[in-house]
Nucleic acid binder design. Sequence first.
DNA 1: GTTGACGTGTGACACGATGTCATATACAAT
DNA 2: ATTGTATATGACATCGTGTCACACGTCAAC
Lengths: 202, 202
Amino acid sequence: MPKITFFNLPEDKRENLVHAAKKEFARVPLYQASISNIIKDAKIPRGSFYQYFDDKEDAFFYLLNSHVSSYKQHFLETLRKNNGDIFDAMIDFYTTIITEVKENLQFLRNLFLNMTHRIENVMARSFGENDLNEDFKKISNLINKERLNIQDEDELFHMMQIISSVTFHNIVKKFAGELPFEEALNNYRTEIYLLKKGFVSG
Amino acid sequence: MPKITFFNLPEDKRENLVHAAKKEFARVPLYQASISNIIKDAKIPRGSFYQYFDDKEDAFFYLLNSHVSSYKQHFLETLRKNNGDIFDAMIDFYTTIITEVKENLQFLRNLFLNMTHRIENVMARSFGENDLNEDFKKISNLINKERLNIQDEDELFHMMQIISSVTFHNIVKKFAGELPFEEALNNYRTEIYLLKKGFVSG
DNA sequence: GTTGACGTGTGACACGATGTCATATACAAT
DNA sequence: ATTGTATATGACATCGTGTCACACGTCAAC
């Protein structure tokens, strides 16, 4: 978490700094980002940066969290819009991610191509990292379970784990492979379809 | 790839260096590893390191590749041993990974908790990263498709993609959560079971 | 209006890591 | 011996990090 000093900053100065950080993390992934670039761009002295943040990661995760919150919101709306059909909602959501633009897209690209567990952990909260999780319950309540071949909450939890693994991986492959939109979407659709019908007949 | 000089090295000196590198990459993930530590441990001068490798990553991926080759071998044997039952083979293989010991375990831990796309790409070759892939064909030929609810090679490819996404993610969660062996295995079994039966009834 | 306390701003600095390069050494071939 | 080629070496320039002593500004108390 950023320090209190950061939140006490006059809005324009704070936004300026945030923008410089965003720019740097859109340029390169976390481990290659440099504080020097951020402060040069934001035109603040080195010491000031350390008044606001513990270090590079602190700034990064602050930005990441705000991204995640907004995507979380968006996902819940998407799920509602699709009347609780989790599969349609995922495809919808997947489309949103891979059609982001400009700086946001670069940020996401660096994010997904360098998805350490620590980062994944922050993101996965949207999908419910553990079964006591508030977000998981919210999602669970929205899901239409009528035609789901799922026995209990535990299976539902693991179903969500699987879906998010597959979704993450598809996003990574889209970003890595520079696949055209249609191809990426078809791949994802195929995999969701396979998940629905299952691998074993009978 | 390491330079020719590296392969010309007398065996004991080379192994000594490899061991020092392994130790460093078992200590911390790639992005935190330091060449200084490696050369200190291997007792070679700084300049020599750069005679053998381009940089830190070069050394890392050399080690990684040798790990992957051996696991690839092991996976094919496992699949044969399980008479082409891909699901049993995966559970078998998963067990192997999470019960590795000592230095190997730490290396894998750092690997999976910091799985960038570049690393995943190297690993995924064992599972067949693209359908023209030699390894994918080998695996495909070994798989018993009798009871599989799979129409064609494309679906098979995506099935493998899904299985590897889920497997990777389970390994990450095991390492991150420090889950006891039994719990980790049960989680993985549940997810494989769900993949087999499918999410939608009918 | 002087003082002191507190929060904040600042940049020089010590430290550590990287990759390079000029020079030294070993050794084989002639 | 001489020359050529491969390898060894460590000092060095460069860059990024995090810290620290000091400067500044505000405000309340006296």
